[in-house]
């Protein structure tokens, strides 16, 4: 599933990474716990309700570069600036974590575990 299709499915807004929307996404991980994100060996798309600079820093360290913020959380300018340095994609949806995960799972995005 391409990022563009994900954006359409989630009725989401793209805050960063317009040029990468044709990239394919196959796996996702959903968590508000950054400690959990730091244990991942793989590099899935992150779905999270935690919207602060540490979300971006954690993704940088864990080499995740696509983040979906749920439930109307919008990345701040300093988050976007930091994410830009790491060539990340930031999108945001008004849908809940549960609905976001359900829609993407139904569309074929795979879990890690």
């Amino acid at each position: 599933m391409t990022l563009r299709e994900i954006v359409e499915k989630l009725n989401a807004t793209v805050y960063l990474g317009q040029s990468r929307l044709d990239e394919d996404v196959t796996t996702a991980f959903a968590s508000d716990l950054m400690s959990d994100v730091l244990t991942l060996k793989d590099t899935p798309m992150l779905i999270t309700g935690l919207c602060n600079v540490q979300t971006i820093r954690t993704c940088d360290m864990a080499t995740l570069d696509i983040v979906v913020f749920v439930r109307n959380k919008k990345p701040t300018p300093d988050m976007v600036e930091l994410a830009e340095d790491n060539d990340m994609v930031l999108i945001a949806t008004s849908y809940s974590m549960f609905k976001t995960c359900g829609l993407l799972f139904d569309a074929g995005i795979q879990p890690l575990y």
């Binding site: 508000d32 716990l33 950054m34 400690s35 540490q54 979300t55 954690t58």
Partner: peptide, 9 residues
């Protein structure tokens, strides 16, 4: 609140 403190560090 910052997404840490779960005893995993």
């Amino acid at each position: 609140d910052m997404g840490f403190g779960a005893g995993m560090g």
